[in-house]
Every structure is written in C-alpha cells, then in structure tokens.
Amino acid sequence: MNWLQLAQEVVEGKVISDQEAISILNCDDDELLLLLNGAFHIRKHYFGKKVKLNMIINAKSGYCPEDCGYCSQSSISTAEIEKYPFITKEEILEGAKIAFENKVGTYCIVASGRGPTRKDVNVVSEAVEEIKDKYGLKVCACLGILKEEQAAQLKQAGVDRYNHNLNTSERHHSYITTSHTYKDRVNTVEIAKKHGISPCSGAIIGMKETKEDVIDIARALRQLDADSIPINFLHAIDGTKLEGVNELNPRYCLKVLALFRYINPTKEIRISGGREVNLGSLQPLGLYAANSVFLGNYLTTQGQESNQDHKMLSDLGFEIELVEKQEGVFSL
C-alpha cells in the first residue's frame, strides 16, 4: 500500500474503503513510519504543526449508578478511588487557572454519574461564565446523559463543547455496559449539536473489541460529525470488569491513531487517557496523526508531568495553539 498516495486521495475527498481501513490496522511494523508519514500529510494539510492542549478537572468522583466495565467509578467497580460529590465553583475556577498557566486551550469539566442534576448544571454554568471572563479558555463539559433544557443552559453560559464518548461500536456496546444503550449516547451528542454546542465524542481502544469494531467506531464518529474525537487506550484498573486486560502495544496504538486520521481527516484527533501506559516511549509519534493531547492527570489515573509534554512538543518542533488571552504571554 502506498500510504502517502492514499493520504493525498483522502485530502482530495476520498473516503477509504473497509479493505484499506483494515490494511491500516494490519500494517506491517516495518511500514509504520510510512503509514505515519501519510497520516501526517493529512494532519499537516488541515492543522499545520499546531497542537491543541486539553486538561481535565474531575468535578465529581465515584457514586455512579452505571455499570461501565472500564470505569473505576462505576457501580460494579471495587477499585479503591477517591470519592466526593460535585465540587464548588471556586474549585472549578482554580482548575481553570492551572490550565491557563499550562498553556491549555480547552478546559474539560468532567463528572461521574448517569447525568447532571439541576444544581450541577447551575454550578458549571456559573463557573464557565467566570472562566470565559478571566481566562478565555474553551470549555468542554462532560456530565453524562444530557437533557434538552440542560444543553440550552450550558450553551447560554458559554460552554463550547460537550463530550459524550460512544466508546466502542454499537455491536460491542452491550459487552461494555448494560445500564444505558449505544443510542442513549448518540442521542446526547445530537442534543448538544442541536443547541449549538460543538460535539466531542470518541473511543476507548483495547476493550476486547475486534479490528472491525475499531473501524466501525471511527466511521460512526465521522457520521456523527464529531468535531473533536478523543482516542483513549484502555488503562485497565484493578477492581473493574476489564481488570487485567492488556491487548495493546505501542505500534498498534499508532496504527489506530492513523486510522482515525484517515477516516476523519478534518477533525481534532485527541490522544487521551492511557497514552502514557500504552504508547510509552513512542508517544511523540502519535502527534504525527493526532493534533491534540491531554495534559496532567485523568479522572482516577495519573498522567505525565506537564513540563514533559511541553518539552515533547518543543522537541517535535510543534506549536501549541494558544487562546487569545494567552497570546504574547507564553512562548515555547
């Protein structure tokens, strides 16, 4: 396969076939750099060498009634994690300050649970209005299954993006969770879109899915027209249903990132949870396909130190995409 030629065809509007998609995931390791060169050709065409930085604040930990098999906060998990109710507006603002100081462009307010209460939405709304005024950050909310009136309120407050991951293919979904449906997830993304909030939805790779499942989720996200696509690589946590699952290696993870770039050429592909564990020393290569990455810690697992990520980007010769209030304040 001539990966660079395929990449140019994608730039010209081609939608790759299932045969080409499976060839990406089955790419011989000896051709991996050629595959990534093709992915970078697409990435550079649409995004240049800019990288978007994101940071999470875990606004509510544990106490979730859902039974998601990957999650340490679920009702069936016995993982030892910190549990606490929804944090205060002041704590959310303090997290935004840390994000701003770390050159982060998108600040993600994430909470466990099936969906937010009225009080939760009020706290987030009040915090977002101040974040916009003080720091100018983009704000992504991830609060679970969303209702129409909640989406309208979040939009009014200034929430730019709403995240609700599809996580896996529709075919594989019931293996991962039974307390809500795949269509519930799709519906939440559609509600966010309906109210003018940018849709963010992605996948978790390494949950005993097939390569065909990976292709299906990449195509589903294209059909959903998600603006931002976070790609998580399973970091199996003791006490969860997927405890001990370890199907990934760094080279396959890079092929997955390339696949998502070839299928979703114009979208923000974000390297997300589990990158440190699963990509290891090959993390920098992931940014030849992806154009976005999380800094800091995740929900209940530790991330890489932010200064290491800043150095990685500097070593790659990539440019951090700053928000307006950061322009002139920072330099690499």
Rank of each mutant, 00 (worst) to 15 (best):
K183A: 14
D184E: 06
K155H: 13
Y175I: 09
N278C: 14
V323K: 00
V128T: 08
V124M: 13
D133P: 07
Q304K: 07
N307L: 06
N163F: 11
E101V: 02
T300A: 07
G328R: 05
K97H: 03
C68R: 01
I205L: 12
Y135P: 06
I215L: 11
I271G: 00
I42R: 01
V256E: 05
Q153A: 11
L285C: 08
L287Q: 05
V124C: 12
I176M: 15
E321W: 00
G13I: 01
T178C: 09
F100S: 02
K44A: 13
N291C: 03
E94F: 02
F294A: 06
S331A: 05
I269W: 00
D227I: 06
A59G: 08
S179W: 06
L282W: 13
C27K: 11
K267C: 03
I109W: 01
N26R: 12
K325P: 00
I145N: 06
P199I: 12
D30P: 02
E80F: 03
D29L: 09
S331K: 06
L248Y: 03
G144C: 12
V323P: 00
H195R: 08
K138C: 15
C64S: 10
Y107V: 02
A220N: 11
A218C: 13
R261M: 05
G136F: 04
V323Y: 00
I81G: 10
